[in-house]
Design a protein around this nucleic acid. Structure first.
Length: 608
RNA sequence: GGCCCUAUAGUUCAACGGAUAGAACGGAAGUUUCCUAAACUUUAAAUCCAGGUUCGAUUCCUGGUGGGGCUACCA
């Protein structure tokens, strides 16, 4: 067996061999999902472990007996990969022959080994993420969203998928009018230029200002005895906002001009932020273009009797049978709601792309919304509704709880990135290893490290889980962090440069890695084993929609390499063959680290 | 009220139903004439509670308790 592209998955190989064994020797058929093959835990000797309990039960023999017999059988029939084995309780630990690892190494030395080519003519995977409102700047929550979306797109691409990244900007609606009204009333013509403020921050300022004035008005109203709800209905400010929205919807040129101007400011700000985060989109859609979509579809649904029209004219989907209550789709005045628009957008995307999957990266506070969306589409008869996938990620919380823009506890994206840059700068300068860097290079490095720390901090956590961010304690640069992994890469590159400088004949990787299998040392083998896992990790991350899988892998690999690096020398090794082998192993490790980090949207430096 | 998610060292995170629950930070103690000490080594420290299923449960089920979210003719 060769570790070539067509047969990388040794797990599958061992699994099918075991199934064959069960069939041939015990005459039992074992369902493949009951059979567990896993990496051997560190405290035991061996590379892979087959768990015997399932077989032993069916074969009616003790787990130990089965394990022994299987081990023997594997050695006889698969001696080219199975070397030795040991049995502990119900676990069969198998040691793979060194030749297998060397073969894998030779194959992996090819630059393209880890690259999966996209299948021709396959349907794309759509992934919508970011989806900001144009009334305030991006914050930490958006950062998690953006990083997840970007990383997931990279991971899916690496698994050979065609990916289309979409952004749907919420650029209209009552909340947008609030900042517009506030600017119109109290802005005195202020612009990003005149105030030297980033456009999205300037607009955000007026959104907050509106809220302050509105609250003040409420205080006065409720002072005169009415309750809060009445007060809101009576509010002159709210009435003006609603009026502004009406004028916007009627295409009033003055309002439209104001709207366009302020949105342009915001987009300029967003572009800057996106560039700094390092994300991009294939298409950006605007709700002002799409918000009317879906109305016709809903009306058609009424005609076909799939939806209910109530006496007041409003239209509803009845989801009570599946426990989701009734959901409004058209108001009594015939206007649409958010759900209507999402129905329309989904339909038009389906027509345009015929995707194999439509992934929505949206916070878990909208779980209900997406459940309903899927069910309504299904009820309307769209068979493709099962292609919708909500990547529901958890909120980023602060020590005092959820971020609230009203209470000023929002962690601003731009501020945070600036802080990370600053921390990277300070830390790097203190260590003082990069004296010969040009200012340009320094700037790039600080950005790389600051963003690396931030991105890794966020992506290493399972997306579905609520995560905590403490602004008081700055994000670490030591331990299980982005910079730790970046540092490992820099170290490896440094070794490589030193090798070149001292006149090593490096030639091709394939020449370097020649080593007699029986001379493969344990630590090197351990590294190879981890490198071997990479394609499976990418697949797992894609299937599970979890960049965290890749992040944890990158850390494991970096940690393993650092141990190796500390314990053994590459360039000072006297055995030339072994030294060259170690050099090639280092280079390959560096490549995989770089690839893994790229899947997270993190760059790695040549030196730091 | 109903529905959904969640609970692991002091803290932040890991662990397809598998073996002695891993890391990092913080704590304690070490390693630098040697390829980058943003590293490495040693050490103390955890599965919310009660049942159940299983050869085996942090993981699955039931019931509690704590935390979060959703439940608008808002977006």
């Amino acid at each position: 067996m060769h570790a070539d592209k067509t047969n990388r998955m040794i797990y599958d190989y061992l699994r099918s061999a075991t199934l064959q064994f069960a069939q041939d020797q015990y005459g039992v058929h074992l369902s493949p999902d009951l059979l567990q093959v896993q990496k051997t835990r560190k405290e035991f000797s061996g590379d892979f472990t087959i768990v015997m309990f399932a077989i032993s039960k069916i074969a009616k023999k003790s787990p130990e007996t089965c394990a022994g017999e299987l081990g023997q059988w594997l050695r006889e029939h698969y001696g080219n990969i199975v070397g030795s084995f040991n049995v502990i309780k119900g676990f069969l630990n198998i040691e793979i022959v060194s030749g297998f690892w060397i073969d894998f190494f030779v194959a992996a030395a090819d630059q393209d080994y880890f690259r999966i080519k996209p299948t021709e003519s396959q349907k794309p995977v759509l992934i919508e993420f970011s989806s900001p409102n144009t009334n305030k700047p991006l914050h930490l929550g958006h950062i998690r969203n953006n990083l997840l979306g970007h990383s997931l797109a990279e991971i899916l691409k690496a698994s050979g998928k065609q990916v289309v990244k979409l952004n749907l900007v919420n650029d209209r609606g009552i909340h947008i009018c609030k900042s517009m009204l506030a600017w119109q009333r109290w802005g005195n013509g202020e612009t990003p230029e005149s105030s030297d403020t980033k456009g999205d921050h300037l607009v955000g300022k007026y959104y907050v200002l509106f809220d302050q004035h509105f609250k003040e008005e409420l205080r006065q109203l409720s002072g005169s005895g009415s309750n809060e709800e009445d007060a809101e209905a009576k509010s002159a400010l709210m009435a003006d906002v609603r009026e502004m929205l009406r004028r916007w919807e009627n295409g009033d040129s003055e309002i439209r001009r104001l709207w366009e101007m302020m949105n342009t400011w915001v987009y300029e700000g967003f572009d800057e932020t996106y560039a700094r985060i390092g994300i991009s989109f294939d298409h950006t859609d605007y709700e002002s273009d799409t918000y009317l979509l879906g109305k016709d579809i809903v009306l058609e649904g009424v005609q076909q009797g799939k939806l209910i029209r109530k006496d007041d004219g409003s239209v509803w989907a009845d989801l009570k049978p599946i426990n989701l209550d009734e959901k409004l789709l058209l108001r009594s005045d015939g206007t649409s709601v958010y759900m209507t628009q999402d129905i329309g957008t989904a339909c038009s995307r389906h027509e345009r792309y015929e995707p194999q999957l439509m992934i929505y990266v949206v916070g878990n506070e909208q779980n209900y919304h997406f459940d309903v969306l899927k069910k309504v589409l299904d009820q309307l008869g769209f068979a493709w509704s099962d292609k919708l996938l909500h990547l529901s990620y958890g909120m980023v919380e602060l020590p005092q709880g959820r971020m609230k823009s009203r209470e000023g506890t929002v962690v601003d994206a731009d501020d945070l990135m600036e802080e990370m840059y600053e921390t990277a700068r300070k830390t790097t300068m203190e260590l003082g290893k990069i004296d010969e860097f040009e200012p340009d290079e320094l700037n790039k490095l600080f950005h790389m490290l600051g963003m690396g720390a931030l991105k890794y901090f966020i992506l290493r956590v399972d997306p579905r889980k609520t995560m905590l961010f403490n602004p008081q304690e700055s994000i670490d640069f030591n331990g299980n962090t982005g910079p730790f992994i970046q540092y490992t890469h820099a170290r490896i590159r440094s070794v490589w440069r030193k090798a070149i400088e001292s006149g090593w004949k490096t030639g091709s990787m394939a020449e370097l890695i020649y080593l007699q299998p029986e001379k493969l040392p344990a630590k090197e083998k351990e590294l190879l084993r981890i490198l071997y896992e990479f394609p499976m990790v990418v697949k797992e991350a894609g299937d599970g929609l979890s960049p965290a899988t890749v992040a944890n892998y990158a850390y494991e690999l970096a940690k393993e390499y650092n141990q190796f690096y500390h314990e053994f020398s590459v360039l000072h090794e006297k055995d030339v063959t072994l030294a060259r082998f170690r050099l090639a192993l280092s280079v390959l490790t560096g490549r995989v680290i770089k690839s893994a980090m790229q899947l997270l949207g993190i760059e790695v430096p040549e030196r730091m």
